[in-house]
Design a protein around this nucleic acid. Sequence first.
DNA 1: TCTCATAAATGAACACGTTCATTTTTGTTG
DNA 2: CAACAAAAATGAACGTGTTCATTTATGAGA
Lengths: 238, 238
Amino acid sequence: MEEPLGRGLTPKARRTRERILEAALELFADRGYEATTMRDVAREAGASLGLAYRYFASKEEFALALYMGLAEESEEWARDGLAAGTVAERFEWAMLVKLDQVSSHRGPLAALLARALDPNSRLSALGEGTAGVREKMGGVFLKVVSGASDAPREKQARELGNVLYALHLAILLYWFHDKTPEARATRELVGSARETLRYLRPALRLPPMSRVLSRLAGALNDIGMNTTGPSRGEPRRA
Amino acid sequence: MEEPLGRGLTPKARRTRERILEAALELFADRGYEATTMRDVAREAGASLGLAYRYFASKEEFALALYMGLAEESEEWARDGLAAGTVAERFEWAMLVKLDQVSSHRGPLAALLARALDPNSRLSALGEGTAGVREKMGGVFLKVVSGASDAPREKQARELGNVLYALHLAILLYWFHDKTPEARATRELVGSARETLRYLRPALRLPPMSRVLSRLAGALNDIGMNTTGPSRGEPRRA
DNA sequence: TCTCATAAATGAACACGTTCATTTTTGTTG
DNA sequence: CAACAAAAATGAACGTGTTCATTTATGAGA
């Protein structure tokens, strides 16, 4: 994914891209991600196979475009829909909103996540291909923390934001495996996360727990999970 | 994977299976997992393409067989190589041994993990196809906990063992993305995990932290991540 | 309107994982 | 040894994601 949306494209190209993306998402919703072939997508969009590949480098790129759309929604919501409260409460809200958002897109997102966790994939959650989404969603969790009533100051807030971003990925991973109706198990897990955050929050003032957080954030940074821009924040060491 | 090893097979079949597996692992080590085709494997083993599929239902099955072998090694090591110490220390040792073990098999294991995290895959970490490895490695971490000098009693020990098993998967996931030489970042992360366990261990006696652990273990159980046998331990609810 | 470079679009071809109808080998029984 | 069922082995064929050489449209400048 070069740009958040098809910027730098001719109007005609943008329309075509949009048409193909719509066809893809519709088919995914109908028959599922795996069962939808690239040829199906092209036919449905009234385009040729090659054309689909002109705008989307791979099948998973459709899923990435979908997730990018959701991330943009999240960003808007975080800007003016996020109520006041503690870090724990705001994290829970953000996650519940995310779960609602994501609930009707299991198939494509599962395929995306599988690739996102593969370091070799062009769509690795840590690679360049996903820097856009990472920044967007990372920003959301930074806001969750920094706007909270019990927000830590500067440095720790950034660390906590990053860790919560990672936690959000872990919870989504859990959700993919959650077969309970309405994702009840996942919602309970989110509740547990809220409780745990509430219980541990005071301990963040103490050096041992503060160090744990720093190390965790440092570890994420070391493998390139930085939500603060594409090339900034190089690993601490070679 | 039906059986830990090719049990229930004719001697000839077992030999053939072994020959094909060896060819596969050798090629994976040489040119990498993705770059090795099933046709390559068959040719190298002096077999036909179809024959390879007679013994391995898919390409990833090779990786699963590899991991099964490693899990067996781990089990033996846990039986008589695991020194006395606290849960925190023993967990660190187990992870460091695992990292050494795994260090020369990045490619195939990365491919396996990508599938293992995909709920739809036959090789999902939570599915039947992987029950064998899960039991083996789960048993290792149960032993890590229950044999420790500061082991909690019965129920909590089982919970902690399961959570550490899950943590071990998370750390392996981290390792796949770790580009530092000798997996230095991962080793540091393991050190941090040891510190954190040491710091939090006493809190497990207190109700709030004990509840956190129970919930976490329950959450894992809810999605079928049970290391205590194939069909036992059904989800707590529909 | 004509020219022509650039963008858009095409679809045949490829590679690779996987399937399966068929053939060959093996071992057992009379 | 002959007959034959079961196991082992074969390789052609298929589906699908992806590539790319080629063709067709578009629009700006003369």
